[in-house]
């Protein structure tokens, strides 16, 4: 029960921070940090795949509702949740069924950064491609993807560091 409330609190806080603050941030007109996918990254490693996907889908849909892009973030989130387990397994030597929350302290800085990097670039790639819906301005698209990934990673690493210090 406590665990559930804890999750719910994270869900709501990340959602609000994303839609009220971060969605209006455009660093140099391009990079928008997508901090809310931290929720998907930090779910317990033993959480069943189906549960991760459903939670990710709901989170994505909520963000979509606020930003008038129904389906856009939801599909990218579902994809991220789908590949999460494989991604995690490729970066950690532990047994995949072990009970732990992915984070800097448990995984180490570099494995966790690689995990976040691959996950967020995948997410931003899908999200920005759907948004632009053409490869007409490929340079601008690539720049947007790189800028968003960089700011997203920075935000997630900061939040994770602060969270573990408590």
């Amino acid at each position: 029960m406590i665990q559930f409330l804890h999750r719910l609190l994270w869900f709501v806080i990340l959602l609000l921070v994303q839609v009220l603050i971060l969605n209006h941030l455009h660093i140099d007109g391009y990079g928008t940090p997508v901090l809310f996918i931290y929720y998907i990254f930090m779910l317990n490693a033993e959480t069943p795949r189906i549960s991760v996907m459903l939670q990710a889908f709901c989170l994505g849909l909520c963000v979509d509702i606020f930003s008038n892009t129904p389906g856009m973030n939801a599909s990218a989130c579902t994809l991220l949740a789908f590949v999460r387990r494989g991604l995690l397994a490729s970066q950690v030597d532990r047994d995949i069924n072990e009970d732990y929350e992915p984070g800097i302290r448990i995984m180490g800085f570099w494995p966790f950064s690689r995990y976040i990097f691959i996950g967020s670039i995948l997410y931003v790639l899908v999200w920005q491609t759907i948004d632009t819906f053409s490869f007409f301005r490929i340079g601008e698209l690539v720049f947007k993807i790189l800028a968003s990934t960089a700011t997203t990673m920075l935000c997630i690493l900061c939040v994770d560091t602060i969270r573990r210090k408590k």
Binding site: M53, L54, F57, G60, L61, D64, T69, P70, G71, M72, A74, S75, T78, L79, I130
Partner: peptide
């Protein structure tokens, strides 16, 4: 889930 989101999108 993917089909549902794409349906929403279009």
């Amino acid at each position: 889930l993917e089909v549902f989101s794409l349906v929403l999108l279009f």
